[in-house]
Amino acid sequence: MPEAMETQMTAGTPLLSDTSAVKVAARDVNVFYGEKHAIKGVNLDIKQNEVTAFIGPSGCGKSTFLRSINRMNDTIDICRVTGSIALDGGNVYDRSIDVVQLRARVGMVFQKPNPFPKSIYENVAYGPRIHGLCRHKDELDEVVMGSLERAGLLNEVKDRLDQPGTGLSGGQQQRLCIARAIAVNPEVILMDEPCSALDPIATAKIEELIDELRENFTIVIVTHSMQQAARVSQRTAFFHLGTLIECSDTEQVFTNPIHKLTQGYITGRFG
């Protein structure tokens, strides 16, 4: 596939000039599902303590690209990744990088809330426990409470921490999943359409939360809603058919897109 392999030019500023602020740097990333070329030569910098939104029509590869950052694609047998994705300068596909350690540094929140069928407390405590982050029960309690607090869930659940996490409402479950992810204190949080299964009120709460979390974490969010991308993100990347078409500051992308496809998508002509 010679024409597909060639590096596409991306409109806007996919690469940052201030390299010290770069948290994740993707260079010439190609992802294949068997014969299918799902991501084609993506070059992209993700800035520290910012929210980067991936937008694009269904099947454009934004979720695939997101999942290749914490190597969740490893679980798919036929999936193959080339190029490099550097987290703080170290390629995550390097042999010296352990995938368990990587996922402790890069947390993930999924499209459908997926709490473990255990108590609320156990859900949040699971990450710190398997990584051995807390030596004492008090310390663990502190981490669990702190994470629930930061996820804005503590007040709603503090009287029923021993009840199953699956008994919460959809929005609460998703915030529980966020609390579970930040309990490990990752550097980057990947969110794969975190609000697509939620009602508008729950969505608003999550968006608010994302804005607060940005102070301490680098966040990458895949979303189908352009309004959401505009509301929560500082930078936006537009994918189309596996290619990164355009990436700039969010304001720039939504008010003055450079590429014709970006224009078409954000004005709703296709997608």
């Binding site: 969740m72 398997i130 579970r180």
Partner: peptide, 8 residues
Amino acid sequence: EAALGLGA
């Protein structure tokens, strides 16, 4: 996925 995503 939830477990793997947490680094299990």
